[in-house]
């Protein structure tokens, strides 16, 4: 039987999918075509918003890690686990979409031309993939939670590096467009399409984190039950 919390998650999923359909309409039907780049510029809307969603997810990893280290909050640790997975998926999306966009615009070959944004994003990807590996292969329990919290918090140092890389280094990737000095460097129709996509992508990311959180909570419940059963068994053997 479906529990009420699961039903809420399914409703949230339907809302997120509807949001993504509206965003697709804004990207492909409403937003005007870029005069210089042509249709390929429409990659921008999901590419940039995926990166924003990833930053926010990694922020949640930090918040969860701090909650764990400060108050030993298991919920905080669970939030960090859920958000790290979703953040990694959105980083992958931003990364791959960016590389596909770079090919026709810069004729970019990563083996020949260094780019600060690409390199710092690759580091970010490896850091949080490492975080998930720690979670997977460390023996479950408090030491693993503590180690993961530290990795998640320290790894976040790379997020501002990714964000400001286009200002700190002379590089191929264009500078800020939305948070450019003097306001967004976009026509109003493109800005509206961007904002609608941002709402839809953040709703999708939030939904995914909520689903992953629920999965992690069930996993914890099963582990607790298994440990309790083992303790009971050991106690019954000891009393004989």
């Amino acid at each position: 039987m479906t529990e009420p919390e699961d039903r809420r998650l399914y409703a949230l999923t339907a809302l997120a999918l509807a949001g993504m359909l509206v965003a697709a309409g804004m990207i492909f039907l409403y937003a005007p075509q870029d005069a210089l780049q042509g249709p390929v510029q429409r990659i921008f809307y999901l590419h940039v918003n995926s990166a924003i969603a990833a930053y926010i997810c990694f922020g949640m990893v930090v918040a969860g890690g701090v909650a764990y280290l400060w108050k030993e909050s298991v919920r905080g640790d669970r939030l960090a686990r859920a958000a790290a997975t979703v953040g990694l998926v959105f980083t992958t999306n931003a990364f791959v979409m960016g590389m596909i966009w770079a090919k026709p615009i810069w004729n970019w070959d990563p083996s020949k031309t260094w780019d600060a944004r690409v390199t710092s994003t690759a580091v970010l990807w490896v850091v949080y993939a490492g975080y998930l590996l720690v979670r997977r292969f460390a023996t479950p329990g408090r030491p693993a939670m503590r180690l993961a919290a530290v990795v998640g918090i320290v790894g976040f140092v790379d997020v501002p590096v990714v964000h400001f890389s286009v200002q700190w280094w002379r590089t191929l990737h264009p500078g800020p467009v939305i948070d450019a000095a003097g306001g967004p460097a976009l026509p109003p129709e493109m800005l509206l399409a961007f904002m609608v996509t941002m709402v839809a992508v953040l709703l999708l990311a939030g939904t995914l984190v909520a689903i992953r959180y629920r999965i992690e909570a069930r996993r914890d419940e099963l582990e607790d039950r298994a440990v309790a059963a083992q303790l009971e068994l050991a106690a019954s053997h000891g009393s004989r």
Partner: peptide, 30 residues
């Protein structure tokens, strides 16, 4: 145009695939 289609096809497969995978996991554990 083909780069645009390639990029969005990848995004739909990755994000959609991850959503479906998560929903299946959620259903299995309930």
């Amino acid at each position: 145009m083909s780069y645009l289609i390639e990029a969005y096809a990848f995004a739909v497969m990755l994000l959609g695939g991850f959503l479906v995978y998560s929903l299946v996991q959620l259903r299995r554990r309930s």
